[in-house]
Every structure is written in C-alpha cells, then in structure tokens.
C-alpha cells in the first residue's frame, strides 16, 4: 500500500523559539488578539510504500529520529494517510 506521510517538526517545548515569539508579537498589531504559544516549525511531506498504516508510521517515526528532526532541540509529529489508487499531481490528500 502507498501512504501519504506528513511530518511536522517544531522546537521542543521549553526551547526558545524567537521566530514564533516575533510572530506572536506581530499578530496583535493586525488586530488578532488573544493568540498564545506560537511555535514555528517545518513540514516534510512524502509518499511511502508500506504493508499497513502502522508500519508506515513506525518507519516515519524512525526517519524523524535519525534524520528529519534533531531530538536534542526538536520534536516531530507524524501523520499517515492511505493514498487511493488515483492520485492527482502532488496532492497527497492531507
């Protein structure tokens, strides 16, 4: 089976995120009040073959541990979705 994998990498809780803080300070200037805990991260999306969703997630988590995130300073959230047979362009269906 083919899966669409979505990996979200962001600074670990407790690690300062100056970019997130700057965004948080900028939003009220545009009238967006009440915004808290802004964290800026990055997203890695890819497709992967795996026997089932559990196995796909397991492999993606291992990829995060070994390459996609640096566990000293970053955390990673993985989500996996089965892809239909008919995919359209680069739309991963997430």
């Amino acid at each position: 089976m083919r899966f669409a994998v979505h990996v979200e990498v962001s600074p670990l809780e407790g690690i300062a995120d100056p970019e997130g803080e700057t965004i948080e300070r900028a939003l009220p200037a545009l009238g967006f009040e009440g915004v808290r805990h802004v964290r800026l991260g990055k997203v890695v999306r890819f497709e992967m073959d795996a026997d089932d969703a559990e196995r796909a997630e397991e492999r993606a988590v291992e990829m995060c541990r070994r390459l996609l995130a640096n566990p000293v300073i970053e955390q990673a959230d993985v989500s996996v979705a089965a892809l239909g047979d008919r995919r359209q362009g680069s739309d991963l269906g997430l």
């Binding site: 690690i15 300062a16 100056p18 970019e19 700057t22 640096n70 000293v72 300073i73």
Partner: peptide, 8 residues
C-alpha cells in the same frame, strides 16, 4: 546542538 542565533 547549534540552533539559530537568539537575535535571529
């Protein structure tokens, strides 16, 4: 690890 400079 070496992160982005505090002052960006």
């Amino acid at each position: 690890a070496l992160r982005r400079n505090e002052g960006l």
